[in-house]
Computed example of a mutant assay.
Amino acid sequence: MTSTDVERAAHAYCPRCHPDPQPGERVTALCGATHPYWGRRDRPVTRCPACTALAGAPTLACGHSG
Rank of each mutant, 00 (worst) to 15 (best):
P49K: 04
P44V: 05
S3E: 14
P23E: 10
P21I: 01
S3I: 07
A53C: 07
P23A: 08
A29N: 07
Q22G: 07
V27K: 05
S3C: 04
Y37V: 03
H11S: 04
H64S: 03
R40E: 14
R41A: 11
T34R: 09
C51K: 00
Y37F: 15
A9F: 12
G66Q: 01
R43V: 12
A57P: 00
R47P: 02
A12Q: 11
T52Y: 10
R41G: 06
V6M: 10
E25G: 09
A9Q: 15
R41C: 11
D42C: 05
A33Q: 11
E25H: 10
T28C: 06
V45Q: 10
P44F: 07
L30R: 04
T28N: 03
M1Q: 07
R16N: 11
P19I: 02
T46E: 15
G63D: 01
V27D: 08
P23Q: 02
P44M: 03
A33D: 11
P15C: 06
A29Q: 04
A55R: 10
V27M: 04
G56A: 06
T4E: 14
A53R: 15
V6R: 13
C62L: 01
D42N: 09
P58I: 00
S3M: 07
A55V: 03
A33M: 04
V45H: 05
V6W: 10
G66R: 02
V45E: 13
C62Q: 03
